[in-house]
């Protein structure tokens, strides 16, 4: 996430009071946030109806019936299995994305022969329609006689999207990195590996957590790249998709509520980690 600018004390624009643009834009922002959260809160509320509940307001009763239904009914599919697979897959994607993006970020700091080709291939992989890549990967695996599975072909399909994304985030993070620190370390006799391990990685750590966060969510939520690559066992978005086609009860909303809670637990963990890393760094700097 972006750091505060060092010039925040300098007042800009009209000093006394707020300009009229402030109020207009505040209204825009509030409207945006309401439109962002409004619909989601509707389904969270509607998921707590009782047996009579339908897909629209008014709310009928209050119970956790549809949550029980979600995990016990056969027709709602294998939500639990899909959830577990998605978590494991997203965790693998996250680790590989952080390592790959960090290294690619380091690579692109200097020019090397063929760097433009790699860069544009990466952009290509980023913008290619997910389902098209999924279909191609499915055919590729079929051709070589390898069975498509969520931990192999889907993993690759996800990386073809999370890695370019992560590298772009790394670019933004590294643009704020002052190379003077590296040079200072080198002047003090640090080896290349020591510079990376003891200077670059600790300074970039919050940015790396941001990459991890992106990698995790993009994978955990990826649908079109998984459709043709996850083999016989579904990931969570595929389960959600088949539910939207087959289930017309508030179970669907209950699933929305559950997955949101799971996402929030994960983002909370990551933000906690960022805060912890920053505090540790502040302590170290203060103690030094």
């Amino acid at each position: 996430m972006s750091n505060s600018t060092p010039h925040r004390r300098i007042r800009t624009l009209d000093e006394p009071g707020k300009p009229w643009t402030f109020w207009v834009l505040l209204a825009v922002f509030v409207a945006y946030v309401l439109a962002l959260y409004g619909p989601m809160f509707c389904i969270y509320i509607l998921s707590f109806q009782d047996l009579r509940g339908g897909l629209v307001f008014p709310m009928k009763g209050l119970s956790v019936h549809w949550f029980v239904d979600l995990f016990t009914q056969v027709r709602t599919g294998d939500v639990k299995g899909g959830f577990q697979r998605s978590i494991v897959l997203a965790a693998m994607v996250t680790v590989l994305t952080v390592v790959g993006s960090f290294m690619a970020g380091m690579a692109f700091r200097q020019r090397f022969k063929g760097d433009t080709v790699v860069f544009y291939l990466m952009i290509g992989s980023l913008v290619a329609p997910g389902l098209v890549l999924g279909i191609g990967i499915g055919m590729l695996f079929q051709y070589f006689g390898i069975e498509a599975a969520w931990y192999s072909s889907a993993l690759g399909a996800h990386l073809s999207w999370t890695l370019p994304f992560g590298v772009l985030v790394m670019f933004a993070v590294m643009a704020r990195f002052d190379r003077a620190w590296e040079e200072a370390a080198r002047d003090l006799g640090a080896s290349s590996w020591q510079v990376i391990r003891m200077v670059v990685i600790p300074i970039l750590a919050p940015g790396l957590v941001a990459v991890a966060l992106f990698g995790f969510t993009l994978s955990y939520d990826e649908f079109s790249r998984s459709l043709q690559t996850s083999g016989s066992l579904n990931t969570l978005p595929l389960e959600i998709w088949s539910m939207t086609l087959n289930v017309t009860s508030p179970s669907l909303y209950a699933l929305g509520t559950v997955t949101t809670i799971a996402s929030f637990l994960i983002i909370g963990l990551c933000l906690g980690l960022i805060a912890y890393l920053q505090r540790r760094r502040a302590r170290r700097v203060a103690g030094a």
């Binding site: 790959g100 690579a107 090397f112 790699v118 291939l121 990386l159 073809s160 890695l163």
Partner: peptide, 30 residues
């Protein structure tokens, strides 16, 4: 410079070759 550049770009390239380049090639052939 070139060597370290390619060394650091290697993981990205290793993913892009099968899962983007070869994939697009397969679709193109099909």
């Amino acid at each position: 410079n070139r060597k370290t550049g390619w060394f650091f770009a290697a993981p990205l390239v290793v993913v892009l070759i099968p899962f983007f380049i070869a994939t697009i090639a397969v679709v193109l052939i099909a």
